[in-house]
Design a protein around this nucleic acid. Structure first.
Lengths: 255, 255
DNA sequence: CCCATGAAGTGCGTTTATCGCACAGTATTT
DNA sequence: AAATACTGTGCGATAAACGCACTTCATGGG
């Protein structure tokens, strides 16, 4: 794909090594050299050099057959968490919101066609997958994702939706780009978004944009609950006032 | 320091790039090329190549003067979080413990002379610094650190304490290696550890080892509260039973 | 039991990525 | 305004990284 200029200042080895780290995930906790070579499209020799290097500097370990990451890689993610203002600012407010409502709350950024969790206060485990800071979910079918997409130029939002090659995660998931465009327009108008079991059956989530001093949408935050406990309409009624309050509270504090 | 063999299979560029990422932290959220060169002991040219590479692949951004990390680096840390069993297993139990006690609970691994947070459920902000998954604190003056050190060979524990070049963080901090050795022996005997304002004034923390099916100490978990609300003795009385219960509950579930 | 398969390790010749220096341009400081 | 500090660029030298080809080893099926 990239048959372009060789780029004088580009450390290919670094790029490859990071790709190697990223190819570990929940479904692939331990990988062989050949696994990594396939997953990253590197040559086996290159993958091997990366993995051995990672092992040597303590980011991975090797038992003779499989490589695993070590907790040391958390240093890398934490480097951003510690240096970015927003996660630290928002976290205590989420904890308060969560305590008041007895529901889990989170904050996300938009990254490509995905939302990226940057802060979270969990009240109880409601989703089948564990959410944590660093988790990514598709933007098009999440309440925070739609809030963030609605804040972008419609063409940009559509491009991001298409980039994700959206597929339905439940029978309720809306995947049609045109219907999504309509929904985003509504979200933009009403200033919040409710997603009712489009990400996972039984899960309802309500999100609102996080706006900075200049009026820009920089992130989104949400509350999520179970459909058994309360309907979408009930959640809106119960939670919107508190969320609006938090939005107003944070506005003068963000960048 | 390493004037050794050149090591046939070692990608120096990868090691340097990771060092560059790690030199960002709370106190250094944006850095110039020269800053990074100093912090990592790389040549300016090498630091520049690393930063430009990171920027090109989306892990950093450059405004013409300063480099910052982007949230994309969270992918790296999340690669481990998602692939390791322990954090995901422990997190919901911490949330329950935290809900029952109305105090913040965490789980940590021992990494060198530091403890590394791998899961956490915060009830309210009690420490002056925000704790999150990926945070590191010195082992010698934290309840979880002492639990984890106590589980090691005494010589190994002492070596780790000395490696940290411990300094007092409050007037109560014990830094003397011999006194610490005595404390660790007590911790080993009683099976838990209370640290009373040695890490931060006003903060009391009680920790217990997390033991796996083979009887090995693989991690530690804790509850922390404020001294104004309850004394160390009160905390022990109120929290130890629940923590013992959790310890027993987790034991058959861990590795 | 033996052969087919897939993966790991090794050696090597080639290539080019990486290195650090040196110089020039620019911003910041005193 | 001189001085300091930092950035960007070019370049030649070096060795670092590359990928191929081959061997070895483990696994599993016939």
């Amino acid at each position: 794909m990239t048959q372009e200029a060789p780029d004088r200042d580009h450390m290919a080895a670094l790029e490859k090594g990071l790709a190697v780290i990223e190819c570990f995930d929940a479904a692939h906790d331990k990988l062989t050299i050949a696994d990594v070579a396939r997953a990253t499209a590197l040559s086996r020799a290159a993958a091997r050099r990366c993995l051995l290097t990672l092992a040597k500097i303590g980011y991975a370990e090797f038992d003779g057959k499989f490589f695993r990451l070590t907790p040391r890689v958390l240093r890398l993610g934490h480097a951003w968490l510690a240096s970015a203002a927003l996660p630290q600012l928002v976290q205590p407010f989420l904890e308060r919101l969560s305590e008041e409502t007895h529901e889990s709350s989170s904050a996300c950024l938009l990254d490509g066609h995905e939302i990226l969790y940057i802060a979270r206060s969990a009240q109880r485990r409601i989703m089948s997958v564990g959410l944590s800071v660093g988790t990514r979910l598709p933007a098009f079918c999440t309440s925070m994702g739609r809030v963030l997409l609605a804040a972008r130029d419609p063409a940009d939002a559509r491009a991001r939706i298409l980039a994700g090659r959206s597929r339905a995660l439940t029978p309720h998931t809306v995947t049609d780009p045109d219907r999504l465009a309509t929904i985003l327009a509504e979200v933009r108008d009403q200033g919040y978004c409710i997603v009712d079991q489009e990400l996972e059956l039984g899960l309802i989530s309500i999100a609102m944009p996080l706006i900075n001093t200049r009026g820009e949408v920089v992130a989104a935050f949400n509350l999520s609950g179970q459909v058994q406990r309360s309907s979408a309409a009930e959640m809106a009624e119960r939670f919107l006032p508190g969320m609006r309050q938090l939005q107003a509270l944070l506005r003068p504090l963000v960048s």
